[in-house]
Design a protein around this nucleic acid. Structure first.
Lengths: 234, 234
DNA sequence: ACCTGAACACCGTTCAAGT
DNA sequence: ACCTGAACACCGTTCAAGT
C-alpha cells in the first residue's frame, strides 16, 4: 500500500496542508519537505503536483486571495450596477472596503504578508481584485490610464502598510531577546555625539493603532487620487 | 598562521563582503556561510561579530540607508533652516526628493528590496530619515500627530512601490521559463467559463514606466496628505 | 578574544528505479 | 502516472576545543 499509480491527494490538499503549517508555525516554516511530511509523502512526490516551491506559494496566494471579494466587496460591485447609471460614482466606499478587506486578510493569518511578498501577484484572483479597483476608478470618471495609476497606488499602499505592520509585530515579539552585542552598525554613520531625533521620539508616544492609521492613510491617498481627475481635464 | 587571538577583520569588512555577494548573486545568496567563505573564515567565526544572521542583515540595511540623505536631501534640510522662518513651508519638494532618493537606493542594487523587507527599520539611519520626513510635515504646519501619520503614509508608499517593482522585475526575468505545469491554482476559483478582465487587459497596454508611476503616486499622496491639514483646523 | 572542526537539524531539487 | 530512496549541494546555529 505504499507506492503505486494512485493519485492519493490533490493540489488542493497540498495547499491545505501548507496553510495549516503557515498558520501554526509561520511563513518560514512552510517548506516542501514539511508539507510533504504532513501529508505522509516523500518530498519528491511534491514535484508531481508543483514544479517547484514557488508554484506552491503561488497556489497559496491564489487560495488566499480567493477568500476575498466574493462576500463583502462583491455586493459593492452589484450596488454600483444597480445604482446611478450615468453619473460618476464615488469610488471611495468601494476602494476603502476592498483595501480594508485585503488588509484584514493579510494581517489575520500569521504568515500572510510573507506569503504575498514571496509570490508574484498575477493569478486570476489577483487580477480580479485589480479589475474591481479599476472599475471603481473608471466609474468615478477617470480615464483608463489614470485609473490604472490610481489602482496601482492603492495596491502599493496596502501592500506597504501591511508589510510595515508585520515587521513591527515581529519586532515586538522579539523584544524579550537581550541585545548582548552592540547595534552592529553604529560604527559607519555620523553617530558619534549622541545625535538625537526629537520629533521621532515625541511622535512615538502618540502612535495610533495600525488599523486606524491604515484607514487614515488610504483615505488621504484617495483624496489625492481624486483631486485632479474627476472633471475631464482635456 | 591559522587561528589565534587576532581580530583579523571588522564588522564593516563583513558587511562589505555581504554587499558584494548581494549585488552579484542577489538577496537569496546572502548567507552566513557564503560571507564567511568570501572572507576566508569558517561560518562559526561569524558569530563572534554578529549574534545571528538577522543582525548581519540589519547591519547591511543601516549601511545602505547611510548612503542616503547626506548628499541630496541634507541640502534640502539646510535650505529650510535658512529659508522662510515662520511661514509654513511646502514640504512637497523635500518629501519628493527623499522618497525618490530612497527609491533609487532600493531599486539600484539588485537585492535592495529583499534586504529592506528582511530586517527591522529601527536603526539610527532609518530613524534619521523618519526625522526628516517628520520635519518636512511639521514645517508645513501639521501638528505632530498628523505629521506622524503623514510620514508613515509616505514610508508605506515607498516601500510598497519598490516591493511591487522588484516583484515585477523578477517575474520578467523568469519569463523565459516554460510553464509545463498548469497555473497550479486554477481549480479552486470561479475560473471555469473564461472569466475575463477587460479593464486589466486594456490597461496593461498603457502601463507607464515604474519611476514615472512612482512619482505620480507619491505626488497624489502628498496632495491628499496636505489637503485637510495646512490650515490649523481647531 | 578570536578562531577552527565537527556536528545537529534542517533546506530545494534531481535522478534512477519501482508499481 | 505516481511514488520511493538515495543523493547533491546547500542552509543557520551550537558546542567543545585550540591559541
Amino acid at each position: 500500500m505504499k507506492p503505486g499509480p494512485r493519485r492519493s491527494i490533490s493540489q488542493s490538499d497540498i495547499v491545505d496542508a501548507a496553510f495549516e503549517i503557515l498558520e501554526q508555525k509561520g511563513f518560514a516554516a512552510v517548506s516542501v519537505r514539511g508539507v510533504a511530511a504532513a501529508l505522509g509523502l516523500t518530498p519528491t512526490a511534491m514535484y508531481t503536483y508543483f514544479p517547484n516551491k514557488q508554484a506552491l506559494l503561488a497556489g497559496m496566494v491564489e487560495r488566499m486571495l480567493g477568500r476575498l471579494g466574493l462576500d463583502q466587496v462583491g455586493m459593492a460591485t452589484d450596488a454600483s450596477d444597480a445604482g446611478s447609471p450615468a453619473s460618476p460614482a464615488d469610488p471611495r466606499p468601494r476602494v476603502l472596503a476592498l483595501a480594508g478587506a485585503l488588509r484584514e486578510l493579510l494581517v489575520g493569518r500569521p504568515g500572510g504578508v510573507g506569503l504575498l511578498l514571496a509570490a508574484p501577484l498575477d493569478g486570476p484572483n489577483a487580477t480580479r481584485i485589480d479589475e474591481q479597483l479599476l472599475a471603481a476608478f473608471t466609474d468615478a470618471g477617470l480615464d483608463l490610464a489614470a485609473a490604472g495609476r490610481a489602482a496601482h497606488a492603492v495596491r502599493v499602499h496596502v501592500l506597504g502598510a501591511v508589510a510595515f505592520d508585520a515587521a513591527e509585530a515581529g519586532r515586538a515579539s522579539d523584544a524579550a531577546t537581550p541585545p548582548e552585542h552592540p547595534p552592529a552598525a553604529a560604527s559607519h554613520t555620523l553617530w558619534d555625539d549622541l545625535e538625537s531625533f526629537p520629533l521621532s521620539e515625541a511622535g512615538r508616544a502618540l502612535a495610533d493603532d495600525p488599523a486606524e492609521r491604515f484607514a487614515w492613510g488610504i483615505e488621504r491617498l484617495l483624496v489625492g487620487l481624486l483631486a485632479a481627475a474627476p472633471a475631464p481635464r482635456r
